[in-house]
Design a protein around this nucleic acid. Structure first.
Lengths: 267, 267
DNA sequence: CAGTGGTCTAGACCACGCT
DNA sequence: GCGTGGTCTAGACCACTGT
């Protein structure tokens, strides 16, 4: 007794067969008929059940992968991706950092909560280079293009899994000869704002620009990003009293692991 | 005389051929050898130049499409996607709205700048329905699940192109019998905050949660989103004096057309 | 070992854009 | 009409996962 389909495929329809099959499976996923972790029919089963070729079966799963609904595992099958709870990053983390700086709070606590995250197991890959500022970075830092900046590359880990990568730029003349330019001093208790404080810089305003895009192959590899998952990127500037700019950061986060929370006070 | 490749493909390499070809083309795009709008080799040309099958050539372009680097156009070719300038949405749009409300500024101007956007040619698709609140919406509005809410579906257009879609939820008992529940009164000068003001509600705080994901097929169709382009989603709550919640919104925007700007004052 | 997904080939027909 | 990408087939070999 073969499998009976309530929803059958119409080869004469305008809608491509692989899309029709994808529609059926997508509906099962969205309706909760199958849930995170469940295995979907193998490609061979799809061929038999819907009377299609292997290529069409693979095209179907390719669609669902690019929608971020499933993960393929070689030798095992195609699995419904489970929607893990995303880590929330609150915009008031900066205000909290200011409070700790002012009240001499425990800097170590401050650090392990950097980026608003409790990093369970913490690690930091770092590369520091002095380079001429690109046009973009120069604009953000209000410098002439080509001015030397210290580029600091970070990869943040939690539970031995890479979670976030970023590049931070500081004007080279601001940090030259100070402990800030030495990677050995990372991780720095209290983070960037504490570092800037030792240089006599008070951060009074922060500007963040949030974008999203598909990751580059390099980002996919470094952050272990699944197919069909975009990245959130945050471009950040720290300002001292509305004018000079002290740091520019480009933060890249897998979008299935992070939510950015912002609170806007209007009173 | 056939095409000569500086970078040749190694069929014996561990890296799949279609990835190696994609690497070559990706490099050309990222290095600016080809720029936005330029046509890439046709699939047939790729077959000849790299000595691969049509399937492999198509796989190559499928990779670049999913990375958001190119667009395929039936009957024409594969084209490098041009990075148009994204529309910036500033977080101080709410504060500006408050100012206008307080000073009786021109409400029409206020409206055409809703969402912080100057909609050049403006249109609005709308559907209003009273429905029981889902668990998520109930939590956001601090209501019991199942309580009636007014769900308002919007699609915003600029220059006849769909730019943004959103669902806004208001407690049904708050708006029952008021002009707010009548879709005919949309677009409402001054937007949601002006509407709430007529109900005696003062918005003192707004919370926004930003996420990114791949669009659903419905969103791709409605917003005319290209392959390989994620959406930014904003979940918004408006609060009156830190406690009651007055509106919850789910806004969906194509990530290649929008940047979200937030300014955080620490002084 | 059998079953799974990953890669790759050769070939076919179609819909669409342009000239 | 010709070249383009879109869909679909049948078949092959490989790498990986499980028993």
């Amino acid at each position: 007794m073969g499998t009976v389909h309530v929803v059958s495929i119409d080869p004469t329809s305008d809608r491509p067969v692989y899309q029709q099959v994808a529609d059926v499976l997508r509906r099962r996923i969205l309706d909760g008929v199958v849930v995170g972790g469940d295995r979907l029919p193998s490609e061979t089963e799809l061929m038999q059940e819907f009377q299609v070729s292997r290529t069409t079966a693979r095209l179907t799963y390719s669609v669902l992968r690019s929608e971020g609904l499933i993960d393929a595992q070689r030798g095992r099958g195609n699995f419904v991706r489970d929607r893990r709870d995303a880590q929330r990053i609150a915009s008031d983390r900066y205000r909290q950092a200011v409070e700790r700086l002012r009240h001499d709070g425990d800097p170590q606590t401050a650090f392990t909560r950097d980026q608003g995250i409790d990093w369970s197991a913490y690690r930091l890959d770092k590369e520091f280079h002095v380079v001429p500022a690109t046009a973009d970075v120069a604009t953000l830092l209000d410098l002439d293009a080509g001015t030397d900046v210290l580029a600091r590359h970070f990869v943040f880990y939690a539970a031995d899994q890479p979670q976030q990568m970023s590049v931070s730029y500081l004007p080279a003349d601001l940090v030259k000869g100070t402990p800030v330019e030495d990677p050995a001093n990372e991780p720095w208790p209290g983070g960037t704002m504490a570092q800037l404080a030792t240089l006599g810089v008070e951060v009074t305003r922060i500007e963040e620009s949030v974008r999203a895009r598909m990751p580059t192959p390099d980002e996919r590899r470094t952050l272990q990003i699944a197919q069909g998952v975009p990245v959130l990127t945050v471009t950040r500037r720290m300002l001292d009293h509305d004018r000079p700019v002290e740091a520019a950061v480009d933060i890249v986060m897998p979008a299935d692991r992070f939510v950015l929370d912002y609170s806007l006070d209007l009173s």
